[in-house]
Each structure stands twice: as structure tokens, then as C-alpha cells.
Nucleic acid binder design. Sequence first.
DNA 1: TCTAAATTATTCAACATCAAACGATTGGAA
DNA 2: TTCCAATCGTTTGATGTTGAATAATTTAGA
Lengths: 149, 149
Amino acid sequence: MPTHYQGDPQIASALDVWVKLTRAVDSIASRLSARGTTGSLTITQFGVLEVLYHLGPMPQCELAGKLLKSSGNITLVVDNLEKRGLVRRVADEHDRRISRVELTPAGLALIEEIFPKHAQAVAEEFSVLTPQEQHQLGDLLRKLGKRGG
Amino acid sequence: MPTHYQGDPQIASALDVWVKLTRAVDSIASRLSARGTTGSLTITQFGVLEVLYHLGPMPQCELAGKLLKSSGNITLVVDNLEKRGLVRRVADEHDRRISRVELTPAGLALIEEIFPKHAQAVAEEFSVLTPQEQHQLGDLLRKLGKRGG
DNA sequence: TCTAAATTATTCAACATCAAACGATTGGAA
DNA sequence: TTCCAATCGTTTGATGTTGAATAATTTAGA
């Protein structure tokens, strides 16, 4: 989408790259989703299972931090995963404010089945870039992301 | 977030870059949002006004295409903008299926006020990259995005 | 100890988002 | 001309998302 911005070339360049950045992510995400590699899960549900799979059980607030979502959002997503029997809330013994979330056997079986397929699909999407280009991209993104946010 | 993936280094690298990519976008978007440069508008509402501002009145289906959203979504967002008097639906004379969306004077005034601030904020976010690095990033993203999606 | 501040999870209202189904309309083919 | 397929916008149901308010609990400080 051309932004047609007529001012400062620095601003025009930044707007252009920002649009490219958001559209690239949208584009890749939609192609990944179309492949159905997340099974019957939504993106966020997949994210929750994946984090629990790789990092183990954790409190909801920590889950919110990892996934960059609000606590209210995590409450709902965990609710929906719990209804489907994929995760379980376990009360913390030492701090009764905390409810720890963990995978059920069904949740573990599901993420073990679909994660490799998802990883493979991501690899195929990024195969248009050489290893060096991927490293370069990672460096540029690190500079952009590291700003306190 | 480390993905801790133990397999093919090609897959590990792709997952790593994919995580960096989504997190960079999340991070920048949340900082832009925190600056309040979109005024009292949501991201999508801002997007609609911005497209109408730069490209002129257009049917909802075209708006959906530009913003990569579903038609049902656009219906709702335009509804909300219309309630606030920022846009207007105008029936197409030649094709009664189409309702063209255009800025009202209030909508024009608003986007004319906030867009430059938003553009400035985006420029500041991307000022951590040199012009050459921005160009490099644009090239890499173009390769990633161009895949039919 | 007692109290104030911080943390955790939940709830709610408002908006976003999609997929699917639907009705109205258009355009082309038989 | 008549009918069928495609297009456009809306609606619905399910889920996501935030920010703010709230309740329960813990922690730290006076």
C-alpha cells in the first residue's frame, strides 16, 4: 500500500518499511494459518501450548509476559483450552493468588503432534532467505525491538 | 523467547527469526499505541481513515483488500466510524451492491491532525536503523512477503 | 503487629476478527 | 430472455484483545 507521504524523506522511508514489516508478518501468518499447521487451535491457543511445552508449567501472569498479552486475555484463552481438556489449572501451594497452568496428557499429545509440522512450515516460509540473510534480518529486528517496549 | 528446538538447524533458525519478527512488530506497535498517536482510534479505525485519506473514497470490499481484513470485519469497523461521524456510506449509482465509504469533514479533519504525528512517531522508532539498513530490511521483507499470500 | 502497597486472577464493556451463511444484485451463458 | 454463478455487504457465533475495576492474597514497611 503506497502511503503517498509527501514530506521528510526520513519519514517516508520509515512509513514504507513499517508498512512492509506489518504486511510481511500478516502475509506469512495467513499462509501458515492456511496450511493448517496449528490444527484446530487459534494462534494464541497454539502459543500457550507451545510455551508450556517448551518451558514447562507456569503461572498465568508469566504466560501473559511470554506471549505479550493481557492477563484478562490469558484467563479467557486458558478457559477455552481447559474446556477442551488440553491444559489444567493447579493451585500453587505457597502462594494462593497463583494458579499454575500445565499441559494435560491430551494437550501434550496434541502439541507434540503439531509443533514439528508448524516448525517445518515456518522453515519453508523462510527458505526464500539464505542463512546469512536470516541472520541479517534477525540483527535488524533486534535493533528495532530493543527499545524498552 | 527461546524456542529450544533441538532439530534441524535450518528449522531452528527459521523459528528464531519468525519469533523475532512477530515480537518486533508487537513491540513497535505497542510503543506507537502507548504514544497515543492514533488519538482515540483503534488501529483498524486509524487504518481505514488513513487509506481513505490517501487513496480517496472506495467500496468496502476494496477497503478490506487494502487492510487485509475480512468483509465482515470492515462492516463493523465502518459502522463504528459512522456512529462517530468520521466516515459516511454512499450508495453506488451504477451497482447497487456497492456502498462506497468516504471521509466526512470531521473524519478528514481528524486524520489530517493525527497522521503527521503518527508518521513522526514511526520515523522515530525506525531512527535506530540507518537509511541503508532500512533499505536492507525492506528488501528482506519483500522477499518474505512475496509468496502469493 | 498492623497497615498500606503490590501482585494475581477474574470480570466486564467495548471493539476486533474470522468463517460461514445469507440476501440482494449483477453479469454472462444457454 | 432466463437462469446460474459470482460479487457485495450484512449478520451470526465463536474467539481474541484491551483496559479498567474488583477481590483475594502476599509482601514490605512503620
